[in-house]
């Protein structure tokens, strides 16, 4: 069988790649995609903990379902916001939208 550490390391790698994407990319859509990767990593973690450590409660599975649900809502809203920004500012690059400062 596969030990739990394998899944945890995989989720860590996935999450780190997501972090890199969020920090390095400047296009808002690409950042959203990186955030999705991070959410996937979190889901893997939840499910792994549920089926390995606490299969009698499997709260992690339930959480993964909610993560997917909320992620769907979040993507819908985020893309709506990106569209609006694009229409108002003519760009979808987050570093060009910097009105909120001194």
């Amino acid at each position: 069988m596969i030990p739990i550490e394998n899944f945890l390391v995989l989720s860590g790698i996935l999450f780190s790649i997501g972090i890199y994407g969020v920090l390095a990319r400047r296009n808002a859509v690409l950042i959203i995609m990186s955030v999705e990767l991070m959410l996937q990593a979190v889901s893997i973690n939840f499910i792994a903990f549920a089926v390995y450590l606490h299969p009698e409660q499997f709260t992690g599975l339930i959480f993964a379902i909610f993560v997917i649900t909320i992620a769907a809502a979040e993507v819908g809203l985020a893309l709506g916001i990106i569209l609006r920004i694009f229409r108002n500012k003519g760009t979808a690059n987050v570093d060009e939208v910097d009105m909120l400062k001194w």
Binding site: P3, I4, V9, G12, I13, Y52, P55
Partner: peptide
Amino acid sequence: FLALSVLAAVSSDWPGETEKITVV
């Protein structure tokens, strides 16, 4: 972050079963 999470995953002492999946 990768280094930290790998370190945490490997070095932590997980309570309960860590080798076998129980199917829900």
